[in-house]
Design a binder for these strands. Sequence first.
DNA 1: GAGTTTGAAACT
DNA 2: CAGTTTCAAACTC
Length: 946
Amino acid sequence: MDSPEPTKSPIPSSAAPSSSFSPVQESPFSNFVSNLSPIKHDKVPHVAPRFLGLSSPPLVFTSPRINTLKRPQSSNVEVSQNVKGDEQSTNRPGDLERSVSELHREMIVDIKEDDTKDSMSVQPSSSSGCVDEYLADPVEADCVDSAYSVNLNFKQSNNVLESSANGLPCSKNLESVDKHYSGRETDAVQLLLGQSEKGLETFDIEPLKIKEDQHGGQGISDGCRQIDSDMFDLSSQEKESKNLNPQKGVEDDGYGCDGFLQLQPGSLQMAQAYEGFAENVGVVTDAPFNDTTHDLEAIEHLRGMSRRCLQFGEPQPESTANCSGSPNLVDDVTTSVPLATSSKTEGLGSSHVDLSTSRKRRLVNLSQLAINMIPQSYDNRSSLTVSKPSGIGLHLNSIFNAIPTDQGGTVSIKLAVDSMGTEGIKSASITSCQSMENMENCSDAFEKVSTAPQDRTLEAKVSTIEGSAASESLCTMESIECHMTINTKRKLSSGDGDINEVFNQQSPKNKRKKLSDSDEGCKRCNCKKSKCLKLYCDCFAAGIYCAEPCSCQGCFNRPEYESTVLETRQQIESRNPLAFAPKIVQPVTEVPVNSREDGNWKTPSSARHKRGCNCKRSMCLKKYCECYQVWNLQLPESSCHAFHANVGCSIGCRCEGCKNVYGKKEDYYVTEAIVKRGVGELSESTVAAKKDFLHSELCNPHYLTPTTPSFEHSDHGKNASVSGLLPMRCLPSPESDPTNVSLAKSPRTSNTNDILLETSKENLYVGSYRDKINYNNADNILADDCHQTPLPNHPSIIIDSSSSKPRELTNLSRLNLGPRSGCFTLGGSLRWRRSPITPKSPIDKELQQLDSDGGLYDILEDDTPEMLKDTSTPLKSVKASSPNGKRVSPPHKLHQLGSSSLGSLRSGRKFMLKAVPSFPPLTPCIVSKGNSNESRSNYEEDGSKD
DNA sequence: GAGTTTGAAACT
DNA sequence: CAGTTTCAAACTC
């Protein structure tokens, strides 16, 4: 079911309602699809399909990966649907199209004028890319989270792209479009109009002419201002001419656009137009329309969305191929364009945005987007929830770590934004993203952005807007984007299973291109004897299906063997609930001390390995060391991103002669000792650090994947000492040692986080509780929505938000429970995942509180710490918790578990174990609903066992 | 590309 | 729980 079937299913669904794109449509199928594709995305480059349906098989990464995977899927699904709709629309020579085409022309003209000013330079996707990225970010975030939730926005973007694709009679046109950047917008428009036949070149020329003709009199300088007005006018005209239902658009906006797209009034309109797009068959036309009518920003958003969609699109093609009721269209789009097309399409979409968008607007829009995005997550559930981590527990963590490390809390946000933008740009031009390169690029982009005053303003706005939430969303966005690109690559490359088949369908060439483009970095497994059914296999461990990039032999980690995979996963999880949990736990604790001062989060122990390494000869200086190891996301995805875990060794490590560059075990002790000294005192610096840390964490996957800590906890602390961070946190568990918490924390507690925990258990609990509440509220809302309108209604939202999140939320809401022990653990992990975004607002509040109370950490910690706290035996070393201690797939199931056995919650382990095993199936809401009980039962069983 | 080294994962 | 084996990645040549 997970991968293949779902993908297929979506097709019909999409096909059925060609015109209507109601988010609901995405529902089950879309969810499945999203899940499937997302998996791929997660691994990104490789497009490794995750184990969708597998309830137990945590989707690969219960935490982040799943989300990422899902996102792409959702996007794909949506896209497929959209495509269908587009096809229909495009195919239909409706009056709307005509009118639209006309409008587009006008639009184009206007845009060009604007572009000439702003974008002329911008045209190169790069410049626009930033904005686009920003805009896109939201979308991406949606996509990312959307794993479950199908972001309307994303859909819209997808729709646009698809529509464009549809409009393009020939894949070649798309390519040409890509090549002819300037012509992109026009091309897109034309495509939308169905003028693709003429060819890109003609488009380029025509639009220009049009500009001259229509706006010849207008100065370029006027472009921006007038453009806006013109845009509006045009939009209104278009609407009228098209007979499009503005209302629909508005309503739709309510879904997706409001959340993300709502930027400015104009942008809103744009968003609406987009939404209207999705709904209306003439989506394509709408897209252009939006571009023209709405602010460039909106366009960029759309573009970014489309772009991301495209990126996802790679997977999309798969999904589309699988799902698309009309293989022709799919084939046309996918095969002709495949990955490349996706990128191209992105380029197109981006180009539109780029051209149209002006920095200022961008800035504004971005800020708004950031804001909107946050709400959207709630509203839409889609992106915000993104649960960055969803992408990948470890990987994400590593990624996030990297980001924050570089620039720290707020900075990380900026990076996220910037990176988003840069990524978008690059991705536009370059579909394939190379993990490290991408990151670097992102960072570079970030720098660039920072340099630009406008960008700065944006950044500031973003940061201010939702603070951590925004940053998170952004971060997630970035990661998502990266993943997206990677995923697309992977999708392209991946041909395994149905999903893979889909890719294959697209076109080997495309795949190859993508692979080649993106991917050298994206390594995948090379298993020969394990059949990719053991943790030896990175893919399997990551919860991803093996794909083309893999050179494994006798691989069973494929959609075709889903049942086998699931069973195996279950077995492994039964042995070690944390087996699939992220290995790296966030550094919450450590960051503050050394790294902060230095500004290096990475440095010493920003993140910790769950179990800790056991190096004896490598001195923790080689990749053999899991702490030092460069986590290429461990997953294929990671490989692409190639994020360095940069995890310092900690007490948990049993390494000998540790020389870990990122933090020696000895150093860790020292730091701990220092911390201990100051533990009792929460200096302002610590508080600030905490704040920063929170922000960073928000961005960091760890939060998303608090599981690790919990897991560690759960591990029983076999290595109590082993798991540096976790143990630290765990120790504090009030229950276990309320009074001695600090003591219990022991050395590790030294970490600021630990300190915080120590400082006030109450605070922690309270904070965590609050978080829970907040999250719960949001979750509840989401959950309600989900439940009420499972997939269909809020496909995007429900589906994605870290796919599992909705479930979790629902579970949480159910559980709601409370009291800390159980609730906390679950809530924490769950919250984070699901609400990295949603929570933001709450988080911000909490941060503020923390400021005053220093409880922020609590929240953060709560996620894991609570888990840990709950864990009866904090000291148990990580190993104990998870012998393997590898990736603990966190959370998804945690909620369920929590729900199932609140009473058992106390025993962190039980909880953890339950949670771990019960990874929510990749499939979104549906699964969650249906499986929730199962997972619960499982958890409960585990708990009973415990 | 083949072989070696390494340490995690799995097994006993 | 400890020890051993298996495994695949990382590394070296």
